[in-house]
Design a protein around this nucleic acid. Structure first.
Lengths: 206, 206
DNA sequence: TTTTCACTAGAACGATCGTTCTGGTGGTTG
DNA sequence: CAACCACCAGAACGATCGTTCTAGTGAAAA
């Protein structure tokens, strides 16, 4: 059935049109947003016709949604999985932050897309985005509540605290450049240290 | 010359068309962004014709720019002014944070507009935005360097630290709701405490 | 009264948008 | 061979975009 004949040329791991389209759309969407990227922009960046896009995808929003599907939509489950392991609350909080930072930067462009979703799209697509944001927030609120029970966190406004933590994590997507002086891990430790101890604070003596 | 005749009616402080247009544009721009707001949207929200907008403003970008002109564009100077006063470095840092939070929330919608400027506009408008961001970043880097000289800040990556601080401040624009349980000042102190001491850190004993 | 002009409605223009349609490849399958 | 079908180019459609044009208003100035 599937006898591959003579494709012994240089096309060893040719991406395929569908993957090419996804990659081109990812680059443009993450840079210019949903409204700032036209179907023709995506097609022209590959030198193909617009009908090619509609052959592989239902429409513009389907293309957008598929890019978020394998990346951002899987984030809440990934964060929940990072919490089930052992260790005391501070250790687990650190692990959560590390997993979150790693995942966000692995899917850097997809995450940028997601955060630019204020330019709202269809009703359903917006509802899905809000649901993801809510699940992530709940994860942080629960671990911060735990930290408060253990005496690490002082404030009772754990929800505000969770927003602040998410602010740091999400904001780095806007300024992170892979060609910076620090490696990814060094950067993550720097950010985690800020989230735990702030700009001038010191670790509590325990 | 300017004898006001008999406008003794209820129109004591009638905003005037120009101010009405600015307010309507502010509401829509801050909610849906630049590309997500059409000239007709703004005109329709007041029940007037589109030509009214072009009578008072040069074009869509001029309207956008004017909204940022009296608010965000004045922010760097306001922050610099907050730094010139006396006090040791931590006090001045706290004052900077308070002024920044107060100004951002006073011009909440304008600040939201500014942060959604990733959907870039004209070349010149984008250059102006980048310049504002750079000036604000420089202010934070300089005070953090000062804090480092005084021994409060441990890390040498003050620029990354500045990004993290700005992340917290700017992120709260996305989730702050005036009808929340906390007053503005309570919220600011909560945010400032996080920036200084983090989620679990304690103030250094000095 | 006549003239002027700030102000406004509404039509219109050209460009671009997302999407669909038509037609034609070239290769696989019967 | 003929039939089929995944794949693609390009035209086309209707909607909407920012902007401009035309033609009034009505009140103040002359």
């Amino acid at each position: 059935m599937e006898l591959v004949k003579d494709m012994v040329e240089l096309d060893k791991d040719k991406p395929g049109r569908r993957e090419e389209l996804l990659q081109a759309a990812l680059d443009l969407f993450s840079e210019n947003g949903f409204k700032g990227t036209s179907i023709r922009d995506i097609a022209n960046s590959l030198g193909v016709s617009v009908s090619v896009i509609y052959h592989y995808f239902q429409n513009k929003e389907g293309l957008w949604s598929e890019l978020l599907g394998y990346s951002v939509k899987a984030l809440p489950a990934k964060l929940e999985a990072a919490m089930v392991g052992g260790g005391h609350s501070v250790e687990r909080f650190r692990r959560l932050l590390r997993v979150h930072l790693t995942a966000s930067n692995y899917y850097l462009k997809e995450s940028k897309m997601f955060l630019s979703s204020h330019e709202r799209m269809s009703v359903d697509g917006n509802k899905q985005s809000k649901e993801i944001e809510r699940r992530i927030l709940d994860i942080y609120v629960s671990i911060l509540e735990e930290l408060r029970r253990d005496g690490w966190v002082k404030t009772e406004n754990t929800k505000i605290l969770a927003f602040n933590v998410l602010g740091v994590i999400n904001w780095q997507l806007r300024w992170y450049r892979p060609d910076g002086p620090l490696t990814g891990d060094q950067l993550y430790e720097e950010i985690i240290a800020f989230i735990l101890y702030g700009a001038v604070g010191v670790p509590p003596g325990r």
